[in-house]
Design a binder for these strands. Structure first.
Length: 1053
RNA sequence: GGGCGAUUAGCUCAGUUGGCUAGAGCGCCUCCUUUACACGGAGGAAGUCGUGGGUUCGAGUCCCUCAUCGCCCACCA
């Protein structure tokens, strides 16, 4: 390795070298320290006061990465989030914590499956459809397809890992996890089993968000609303004459008119509703209508959900409403609820692909009663047109109005969601053990109102432990849980954790008993740690639509035994892939559920599963709960919520203490970055053009608490890659740091003491410059600690920037140049101070710019670091081989020196005035000018002590300082507070006299013009007042300048 | 429709219990290749802090109104 820093900073080489150095040192790896966990250590103070560095008892600091989806490479948003996490981890590691950052990836069920399918299609290869066909024919199509997805996953997992490493992420790479690897699979099985056993997982027939394209159910939050230009169709349903039910009186018909945006669902109508408070229509409640096309007779019911029409209303619904609402329980969530309230039949008229069908809940005999046959097999949109056309032809279409409204679309396939009645598995998140616990977990009163069950006496280990930053996101979290519905967890996909349930539907108790299954299960369920658990629903005397699954307790197959004649849907959950049990179940005729789990089920377990749960590992004991979760706000509901509920449920504690919600990165126009817009930026591209440190620095600088980050994107002509000039800031900072380091090392290296001789000097001996810069250092360390503790990454970077560039480089380095290389006490002290400051800067910068700081740490003997202790009085900088492991600087606040700061500020002002004058008069940089300063009182002595500094920084020769120094002839003067700074020799008196004389003439001319105008009676009386005033003001200004110029002329003699 | 956030120099943003003569970076203008750095240095111009009210000795900061933009949630009559 070189002994000195190269002239130019080569980010790419440094990144490679430093990464190898860290890997060789195994610097990222941590082992759990069994003696203490986050949960014991952290409550009283999660942020600071963590100065137990290098002692035996280390506090854990744990971050579990939000696992990126293996669907695609990481983008800038990930770069931001992972920069934040790495900053925190590296900071805490340097503070002496046992810091660990656990990496991993997410299988991202539907997203990955869809992307792989799409790619296969575009490549013209056999795609999902074809494998489904194979599977149907018994040829293991499922396995083959999953193998292809696995390939994709391997590829992208490698890509993502590489990206994170290139960014410098100091994850414990030995602990890399994947949501679908064997350890995580075990956690998923255990969690599912426990929830199943505890009655928190049930099978329900409900309206789900059905994606007819991918043919799977979606969670509520996988549905995106899109504005659609649609129509309102007003359709007339003939009233059945009272007393003549079943007959249609062709001659003298009455109608009710329903309004709908979805005419095709009318096939499944089972009622028409009116508001019981509707004075005009309520009398029709109890009557019946004959549903056109289908000839189904359906009741008119009263339900307050119905909006009473009001054409004047601002509300679109009231404006468009007809007062009659068609009720289609199978195809609309609200109608479904109305149906439940009124015990209406549920008639599903569509197949899973969105075509009209009488095979999925519409009894063929009911369908055959009317004329609906021609619609069977039509796509829902075709059927819509056909039905509208039918109504038109039969003179039953009253009106059509255009209507813009939003419609749910699949976030994957982007087709409109069909509310669809189907059998799905649900987690009963509305249970107080899940939802209630999550609400109670929130800190600072957030969540305490959610505590409804006073029976839970006192705090139970998790309450009030969860804190959001920025705080406002606690509201999002709370609101979500208050309105949550049970969570549909089954997905009709192949890529995912397969649901560990074996079922037999419509089976009699006799059959179950006969196979001996009930005996096996009884025996197993009595064990303290059973492998199987069963539930059933009795479908004999109730339609399965309403019946939920009944979880059963040990020994209670009795009920089935007692009613062997009944028919059941029978479900058995297996805790593990126990082949003996699988054999028993399948012999008995049970079949494994083909569905997989919602991807969020496994990511919800992430903080547990990465620690090896359900095994009682040392990691689990020490590192769950973790310390901080850093994530994007769009994921608070999808992910954070579920982790909190699961962790509390399975382990009785929160999964993490702090949730930091970071900003979103948008493009220059405030749009989301996305592939379709082509405005996405690959972090690797930025690393190539600007360097990893520059990227991290810039991202951290832009991360404020309130604003999303706008990132103007440019296309680099040479590479064709997207980049942004925003990252120049970071690159420039790196460059500056590099060069300041080179300068310092040169100065320290030249001297015999290497900058260590003055280290034990006393404060009183320090020069003003030393006192001042150490005061600034003390303030900076404090500011940086506070910023990082409060997740204020921008403030952290800004404080570094100001101290290093503005104070250290612009002023201190320049100030000490004359003495820095001298073999004097002052020179020694300056070198020690410089070494300490730069060393501290490297340490403080390391979390955000790890590569360059590590590089600058190691190379030269005279340089900071290399195991060398750089401490000086009040500044603790113990030696360390590597920067990554160096102790975080500890600086005494006693170094804050307000007197030195005041003196320095005064000196800076004088220098500023001098420089201003020099610039204005075009004095060449090296030309020394003569300055005289008129100053009184204490300030006189302050400035008097700064003569050398003024000389160095202002390029002046000081001719006089004092209250009554004579004003030099022909001097240029400036006022600084009560001081007067005068520089002579800049003005050629004759030329200046001429210039001023000319100006004097101009001013006098304009003065007489203004006076003339004001003396004009007409003007003074008639012109608008403000104009007159303006003229007066102008005159006053001219007078003032005249006086000034006159004085100057007099001064020139 | 409900909620949250934003609106400060040409651009991107700071401004944490009300005291600001409102800051930074980029860009712009002038000067400078001086032996750490032109990815640099010195200086400069540039804002009635979205609108309209209110509270206060004092408001970018607190309250209300409106406008514009963004996000989240709800909703296929």
């Amino acid at each position: 390795m070189n002994n000195a820093l190269d002239k130019n900073y080569d980010a790419q080489t440094v990144q490679r070298e430093m990464w190898e150095l860290w890997e060789k040192a195994n610097a990222f790896h941590a082992e759990p320290d069994a003696s203490c966990g986050v949960r014991d250590a952290g409550c009283e103070d999660g942020q600071n006061a963590n100065r137990t560095a290098h002692t035996a008892q280390r506090k854990p600091y744990v971050i579990v990465i939000p696992p990126p989806n293996v669907t695609a490479a990481l983008h800038l948003g990930h770069a931001l989030n992972n920069t934040i996490q790495d900053v925190l981890i590296r900071w805490r590691r340097m503070c002496g914590d046992n810091a660990v950052w656990i990496p991993g990836t997410d299988h991202a069920g539907i997203a990955t499956q869809t992307i792989v399918d799409k790619r296969l299609q575009t490549e013209g290869k056999p795609a999902l459809k074809d494998y489904k066909k194979l599977e149907a024919e018994g040829y293991a199509g499922r396995e083959q397809f999953i193998a292809l997805v696995q390939q994709w996953k391997d590829e992208y997992e490698a890509t993502i890992t590489n990206q994170l490493k290139k960014m410098g992420c100091s994850c414990d790479w030995e602990r890399q996890a994947f949501t679908m690897d064997t350890v995580r699979a075990k956690a998923v099985r255990e969690a599912f089993f426990q929830l199943f056993k505890d009655g928190l997982i049930y099978r329900g027939k409900r309206l789900v968000n059905w994606d007819p394209a991918t043919q799977t159910a979606l969670a509520d939050d996988e549905v995106e609303m899109e504005e659609i230009d649609g129509h309102f169709w007003y359709m007339k349903y003939p009233l059945v004459k009272e007393g003549t039910e079943g007959l249609r009186d062709k001659g003298n018909e009455e109608f009710v008119t329903v309004a709908t945006t979805r005419p095709e669902t009318m096939l499944g109508d089972t009622a028409v509703a009116v508001n019981p408070n509707d004075p005009i229509r309520k009398h029709l409640i109890g009557r019946k209508v004959l549903l056109p096309i289908v000839n189904r007779e359906i009741p008119i019911i009263g339900d307050e959900y119905v909006v009473i029409p009001d054409p004047e209303s601002e509300d679109a619904k009231a404006k468009y409403a007809s007062g009659f609402l068609k009720v289609t329980p199978a195809h609309d969530p609200n109608d479904y609820e109305i149906g439940q309230r009124h015990h209406l039949p549920v008639i599903n008229v569509m197949a899973p692909d969105g075509t009209i069908s009488d095979q999925h809940g519409w009894p063929p005999e009911d369908c055959a009663k009317g004329d609906a046959g021609f619609l069977l097999g039509m796509d829902r949109y075709e059927a819509r047109e056909a039905i509208v056309e039918w109504f038109r032809k039969n003179d039953l279409l009253a009106e059509v109005k255009p209507y813009r409204h939003s419609v749910g679309h699949s976030y994957r396939s982007h087709v409109a969601i069909e509310p669809y009645l189907s059998d799905q598995w649900y987690v009963k998140v509305t249970d107080d053990r899940l939802r209630g616990a999550a609400l109670r977990a929130m800190a600072d009163g957030e969540g305490t109102e959610g505590r409804r069950d006073e029976g839970t006496k006192g705090k139970s280990g998790y309450e009030g432990q969860l804190r959001f930053t920025p705080e406002r996101y606690a509201k999002t979290f709370r609101g979500w849980h208050e309105n949550i519905r049970d969570w549909c967890i089954s997905r009709q996909l192949w890529w995912g954790h397969r649901i560990p349930v074996w079922s037999q539907l419509h089976v009699t108790g006799h059959d179950l008993n006969h196979s001996g299954l009930l005996d096996y299960i009884d025996a197993e369920q009595k064990k303290s740690s059973p492998t199987v658990w069963f539930t059933y629903s009795d479908i004999t005397d109730d339609d399965s639509v309403k019946k939920m699954l009944v979880p059963y307790v040990p020994g209670s197959t009795k009920r089935v035994r007692n009613r062997l004649g009944d028919t059941y849907n029978f479900h058995v959950c297996l805790r593990s892939d126990d082949s003996e049990w699988i054999n028993k179940l399948e012999t008995a005729g049970l079949v494994r559920d083909p569905d997989v789990l919602d991807t969020w089920f496994s990511s919800g377990l992430w903080p547990l599963s990465v620690m090896g749960w359900p095994e009682e590992t040392a990691e689990l004991a020490a590192w769950n709960p973790s310390s901080t979760l850093s994530t994007a706000r769009e994921i608070i509901t999808l992910w954070v919520s579920r982790m909190v509920m699961f962790n509390i449920y399975f382990r009785g504690c929160v999964p993490f203490r702090d949730v930091f919600i970071h900003a979103m990165i948008q493009d220059g126009e405030g749009r989301k970055m996305s592939k379709s817009l082509g405005n996405g930026v690959d972090p690797l591209d930025i690393i190539a053009t600007h360097g990893a440190d520059a990227m991290r620095f810039t991202l951290a600088l832009m991360t404020t608490q309130t604003q999303d980050v706008r990132m103007p994107v440019e296309r680099d002509a040479a590479s064709g890659k997207n980049t942004s000039p925003k990252f120049d800031v970071g690159r420039n900072f790196c460059n500056k740091l590099w060069n300041a380091g080179r300068f310092a090392m040169e100065v320290l290296g030249e001297s015999r003491d290497g900058g260590t001789k003055g280290r034990r000097d006393e404060v009183k001996e320090r020069s003003l410059a030393d006192r001042w810069i150490l005061s600034r250092l003390a303030r900076t360390v404090k500011a940086v600690d506070e910023a990082l503790g409060a997740f204020q990454f921008s403030a952290y970077v800004q404080a570094l920037y100001d101290f290093f560039w503005r104070d250290l480089c612009d002023w201190y380095l320049e100030a000490i140049k004359p003495v820095a290389r001298t073999d004097t006490p002052e020179g020694e002290a300056a070198r020690a101070t410089l070494a300490a400051c730069l060393d501290a800067v490297l340490r403080m910068s390391h979390p955000v710019m790890p590569f360059i700081t590590e590089k600058m740490w190691t190379p030269a003997p005279g340089s900071p670091g290399r195991g060398r202790d750089r401490s000086i009085a009040g500044v603790e900088l113990p030696g360390s081989e590597l920067c990554i492991n160096a102790a975080w600087p500890k600086v005494s606040q006693k170094l804050v020196d307000e007197d030195a700061e005041r003196r320095w500020a005064l000196m800076q002002e004088v220098v500023g005035a001098i420089r201003n004058i020099r610039n204005q008069y075009g004095v060449p940089p090296r030309q020394v000018v003569k300055v005289t300063i008129r100053v009184e009182g204490i300030e006189a002595s302050v400035i008097g002590d700064c003569v050398e500094l003024l000389k160095t920084l202002g390029g002046v020769e000081v001719c006089g300082i004092g209250a009554d120094v004579a004003e030099p002839e022909g001097a240029v003067k400036a006022t600084v507070g009560s001081m007067r700074v005068m520089i002579e020799g800049l003005i050629d008196p004759e030329a200046e006299k001429q210039r001023l004389g000319k100006r004097l003439a101009e001013l006098e001319k304009s003065r007489s013009a203004l006076i003339g105008r004001l003396n004009n009676k007409g003007y003074a009386d008639k012109a608008p007042a403000h104009l007159v005033q303006q003229t007066r003001d102008q005159l006053a200004q001219v007078e003032a300048e005249l006086a000034s110029v006159g004085k100057m002329l007099k001064g020139l003699g």
